[in-house]
Structure formats: C-alpha cells, structure tokens
Design a protein around this nucleic acid. Sequence first.
DNA 1: GATGAATGAGTCTTCATTCAT
DNA 2: GATGAATGAAGACTCATTCAT
Lengths: 214, 214, 214, 214
Amino acid sequence: MRSKGGALEKARRREAILGAARTVFAEKGYHQSSVADILSAADIARGTFYLYFDSKRAIFDELLEIFLVALQSGIRILVPRPAPGEPTPFEQLRGNLRRTMALLNEEREMAAILLNHAVGIDRELDARLAEFYDRVIAMIERALRRGMDMGVARECDPHIVAGFVLGGIKETAHRLIVRELDRPQLDEVVDEMMKTYLVGLLTQPPAENEAALS
Amino acid sequence: MRSKGGALEKARRREAILGAARTVFAEKGYHQSSVADILSAADIARGTFYLYFDSKRAIFDELLEIFLVALQSGIRILVPRPAPGEPTPFEQLRGNLRRTMALLNEEREMAAILLNHAVGIDRELDARLAEFYDRVIAMIERALRRGMDMGVARECDPHIVAGFVLGGIKETAHRLIVRELDRPQLDEVVDEMMKTYLVGLLTQPPAENEAALS
Amino acid sequence: MRSKGGALEKARRREAILGAARTVFAEKGYHQSSVADILSAADIARGTFYLYFDSKRAIFDELLEIFLVALQSGIRILVPRPAPGEPTPFEQLRGNLRRTMALLNEEREMAAILLNHAVGIDRELDARLAEFYDRVIAMIERALRRGMDMGVARECDPHIVAGFVLGGIKETAHRLIVRELDRPQLDEVVDEMMKTYLVGLLTQPPAENEAALS
Amino acid sequence: MRSKGGALEKARRREAILGAARTVFAEKGYHQSSVADILSAADIARGTFYLYFDSKRAIFDELLEIFLVALQSGIRILVPRPAPGEPTPFEQLRGNLRRTMALLNEEREMAAILLNHAVGIDRELDARLAEFYDRVIAMIERALRRGMDMGVARECDPHIVAGFVLGGIKETAHRLIVRELDRPQLDEVVDEMMKTYLVGLLTQPPAENEAALS
DNA sequence: GATGAATGAGTCTTCATTCAT
DNA sequence: GATGAATGAAGACTCATTCAT
C-alpha cells in the first residue's frame, strides 16, 4: 500500500516537474532556461530534479516526445473508400487537420516548444524532429498518391507537395497559436487550408488562368 | 595607397571571418559553436576576432542581417497590370519564388542558419525574424488582395493564406536545401508550388470535389 | 537542526572565504589578486566562491565595508562636560585614538587593504572611502569647534586642522602597522600624537618662538 | 641639422605623450586607463607609443619619477643658524611647505596620481613611494632632532612625529588639491599647519591643559 | 527520498605588446 | 620613424551535475 501510494506520489511529482519545465521552456526556450528556473517553478530542490530526470536535456526530450506522440496519434491514415456513414476522405483529412490544430491550440506551451524552441538545439534533436515530420510528410504523400491513383488528385510530385502542406500547417500554427497574431476560429482556418490546397486560390474557370501560369 | 590597400585588406579579412563564422554556425548552430571554433576556422587569433566584431552574437546577427536583406531584395512587389512585354503578375510571382529559392540554394549555409539555427535563440532574434517574415506575409497578402479585387483570386482570408504560402516556402527550402533530401530542379519545385497554391491539388472539374469539401 | 547546522556551516564557510580573500588582498592588492588566488587560499572550487559572493569586487567591498563600520564604531563623539568620574574630553579623545590604532593593529591585513590597496581602485570605491574619511573629519572638526567655543582650543580653521589630524593618523598607521617600520607601544604613539597636536613641538615659552612664526 | 631637429622633434613628441598619459592617468587611475586611452589623448598610433616608452608601466613610472624629483628639489635641508639676512629656520620650514604645496597645486594631475592613483599599484611602486616618503621623513626627523638639540623643540620621538607632519601634508594636499574640497589660499593653509604642529591647538597657558593630558 | 552545498569544465572577452609594411 | 593589424595570455563568471547528510 505504502509502496503503491509512494509510486503514485512519485508519478505525481514527476508530472509536476514536467509541467514546470514545460512552462519554463515555453517561456524562455531551452538555452535561456536554467535548471534553476525549473527548480523554482517546480518548487523542488536541486537534487530532487535529478532524482526524476537524468538531465536538463532529458526532461526537454521527454516533454517533446510525449507531445509528438500525442500529435501523431491525432493524425490518422486516410481510408479512401469508407463504408457508408463513415467520414469521406475529405472529412477524414479535415479531421486530421482539426485534431492537430486543436491539440497545438490546447497545448500552447508545447506548440511554442515544438515550433520554436526545439528547433536547432542540436543534431540529435533536429534528427528526432525530422523523423517526426518525415512521417507526417509520408502520410500526406501517401494520401496524395492515393488521390492521384483514384483520379481525384492531379498529377504532381507528392513528396514536394506534402512539404507545402506541412509547411502551411507549421507556419500557421506558429503564427496563430504561438505568436497569437490573431485567434480566428481554428475550424475556419482549417477550412481555408483545405480550400487553398485543394482548389487553389484562383477563381473559376482556372483554365484560362492556368494558361497564364505557363 | 597604403591606407587604401589596408582598408581593402581589412574588408577582406572581415569577409573571411564572416565566412568562417557562417560555416561554423551552419555546421553546429549558434550555441554549439564557440568563438574558438570560428577562430580556428578563420585561422586567426582570439584578439583578431574582437578587432572585427563586438561579440559572438554580433557576428551572428550581422550574418543573418545581410542574408535577410539579400532575401528581401529578391522579393519584388507584384505589378498587377504590367506594360505589354513586361512580365505578367504570374511571371513576377514566379520570379519572386525563383529568386528566393535560388538564393537559399546558393547560400546553403545561410539557409541552414536562417531556417534552423536562428530559430528560438532568444526573444530579440525571434523578433527580428518575425519582423522579416511579417513583411513577407504582408507582401503576399497584398498580392492576394489585389487578385481578389481584380476578380482573379477567389475570396479568402488573405492573411491566413499568406501564412500557408510562406510556410510552404520555408518547409520546402528546409527540406530540399538544408536537409538536402533530394535536389530536384528548383524551378520545377517553384512551378509545383505555383500550381498547388493557384489551382490546388484536385483534378478538374473541381466543382464536384469542392462540393465534397463542405 | 540540520538546517540550523547548515546555516551555521554556511556562515562559517562564508567567513572562511572572507578571511582567505582578506589575506590575499592584503598580500597582493586588489588588481594583482585573482579569484583563483582566493580559491586556493580558501581551498574551495571556483563555483563555490560565486555561491557566496557575487564577484571579486563584491567580496572586496564587503571586506572593506565591515572594517569601516568597525572603525567607525570605535570613534565616539566627545562629550565636552562629562559627569564627574566620567572620562574627560582629553581622555575620550585618547580613547578614540587608541581604539582606532588598536583595531588597525589587530587587523593588520585590513589596515593594509584600507590604507594601501583600496586607494585609487576606481571612482566608486574612492567615493566610499572619501565618505568615511569625511565623516571622521567632521567629527574631529566638531570637537575642535567645541574646544574653540569653550576657550580651550585656539582659533583655527577646524576643517583644515582636522585634515592634519586625520593625515597624521593614517600616515602613522601606515608606517607603523602596515609597513611595520617599527612597533613601538601604540599607546605611546597615541600619547605622542596628542601632545604634538595639542601642545605642539616647541618648548616653553612658545611665545617667543611663536613670534618667529609670523 | 636634421638629426638635431629630429632629436628635438622626438623630445617634443615624448613630452606630448607624457602629457597625454598624465591627463589620462590623473583622470581614471592606472588600471582604469588603457594604452588606447593614452593613444587617443596623444593622437598617436599604437606602435608609436612603444617607440617612446617601453610599456604602460614605464610611462607611469617616469611620470611619477619626474614629479618626485621635482618635489624633492623643493624640499631643502634646514640651516639651523643662518647668516644674518638669510631666512630663519622657521622661514626655511615655511618655504619647504609652500614650495611643496605650490607644486602639488600647480600640477594637480600629478598630485592626483601621486596621492591617489599610484598607491597600491604593486609592490615595486609601493617601494618607490616608500623610499621617497622615507626620505622626506628623514629630513623632517633631522630638523626635529636639531631643534631638540638646540632646545627649541620639546623632547619627542622625532621619527614618529615626522610621520604626523608628513601625513598632515599628504592628507591636506589630497583634500584641498586633488579632491578640491575647497581652495583656500594655500599660504594660509601652510601657516595653519605650522601653527598646529609647532604650538598645537590648545590656548595659552597650555600648562594646565597639558596637565589634563596625563 | 529529499536536500542544497560543492564542483569544475567551459566560454567569452580584454588589453598590453609585437611586428610587418 | 610611424603605423595599426595581429597576437594570445590572462581572468572573470556560469551552470549542469554530483554527492554527503
């Protein structure tokens, strides 16, 4: 009983330190944040910190890892031909975007850490982020290929295009959520994103404009 | 003569140190790079560095500033109704994208610094970057508004959409140039980008697909 | 108990570092002393020093400040008409001089720091010393004015004369205590000082000599 | 001719650099002054400085040395029984004090350097100053001994008393000339000094007061 | 488990002096 | 002789991590 209570207690404490670190890192970034900052935010002693985490770097990694997993779990592979009553591919896509933006919005601190403070810390972390984004890219790319196979999407370089989409999401989240430039309804932003990437920005008929493109 | 030669020599030395710093920063990032790294890359003594630059931070700022100015100068405001024989707005847009991607590609080190290592260093630098990107956003937004006024662009939230475009550029440059994931012809990437943002990803007629969007 | 012991321990450690710094500064002066010198004298690590003091300058200031306060506290304002059984003004004066010389003598290191090494370090410190000496001057001056009012002291410029007295004390302490030129009984030096400043150096009757002065 | 002109020119330049250094050192002290400060004050190039002086320390030493010699030359050994028409010992003493104070007053910068900035720089310089002051002490002491031999001065420890006199001079010069606390006629200060040290501060008859001293 | 005092490697920056032109 | 660019030794300070209590 005591050990179980202790374990619970221990988990709670860990959680508290993680939360404190998240706030500190989100506020000042990784290098500007000292272990002392986390200590006072968590109201614990120096030694206690190292009882729960191996290093400043380790707690940062863990914070990021948890968030990347959460983000990942909100992004579902599109089912191209859903059973009747199930969401269409477009609806599934919209769901992915909405869940992603919603999570970033709910966890504004983690959004700041992911999109700003975790960038360029060192090669290892860059690699971890690259891996995550590559996975996202691969999912978008796969959906695009499916769309092309089904004749719904036009011929394109799906890998390149996936980068446009990912970039649009990251930049938008950074501007709207991290920098809080304005706070429109995120659902509307998602709709705008879908329209932009799916039908583009030109009016109908695009054909004549398209001619102008070449 | 001597003084002029000296001045030239001095400018050259400065340039050399800037170049060494650029390589070092691009390779290891700001925090991982020590002044000693720059010293040995430039093959100069400690004191010499401080003869030309005030601090490690100052040389980083200068490197970035020069590059931002160069990038900026490659992005021209679109002329909506050019004289005959002049580039059309679409061609102007393509020019902006090509110049930007080309500069990033030629200055791969600076691209890495701008897109990766300069992110999240501290509030001041974040603010400088935000200022730059906000200016780019404003230019894209303005072009979109013009397009809407002229009936060429569909109704949209031009500020939000500008973020999609900027994000697409940044992510693509990061992936293709900084990470060197693959090195397609950049002009083709630019074309793909124009097509994606202008006419979207769906096949014609989009109308029925668009219906699917709502 | 542990925390109290810790606090005591901490105070002791602080004291030890102060003592080491005092020895180092007294030996080599402020600029010749490095933090490393203090470190090895106190046998502590670099970081430990900064755990207790903000900077090399701060510990020097503190050392000096403590000593100035101690000196100050040994200098009492003269009571012109003491109750019977209380020390006469002359005895009070002698007491001030004795306490001052005794403290300087007991704290030979601090005497060296005050009278030699703290001089001319920078404007701020010069100002602090000036403030202290001005206070002493003011006390001497006040006693002189009282003496003049009471008809015991001859007419003079008390501010100027106070400078003679202070100078005599400083120079004597510097020579006897800091430079250790010889170590007479300090009490005898004090008596000599009182005689010199009170009745002068000429034999009786001074009148004829005094004539020679004009 | 040219070489002589060159030599003159060279001497003039040396002089100019010495003057610039004097101003700089007087203003900021030895450690706060950089060679660069002297350079810009003298309007010469870095290398030129080392053409005329061996080091920052050397120029400081030279400045001080010149001044100590000048001070020394103004202090004459007292002639106890001057020929008729020649100044009496008291007049000679007054002359010494006046010349000393006058020189310090005319060379306020050097006074600041001697009395403030040259103190505690390092052992070597301290030794040089000590030597100078010891010589002054010896002269005062000798005069006192003569006075005692002649029955003019009361019995005292002349070495100790000489320190009182030297200290009075130094402190007074520091306060009046370096700190410029007030600028009385220096001749009056000298008279006050003579009166104080010769006949003391008590009114006549001192006998009864003297009693109070014991 | 918790604490916080102690550690010392790591870095930036200054500045007197040298030396090639 | 004059110049000023280059040098590099020296020194202060920070902060993540350890460990005795």
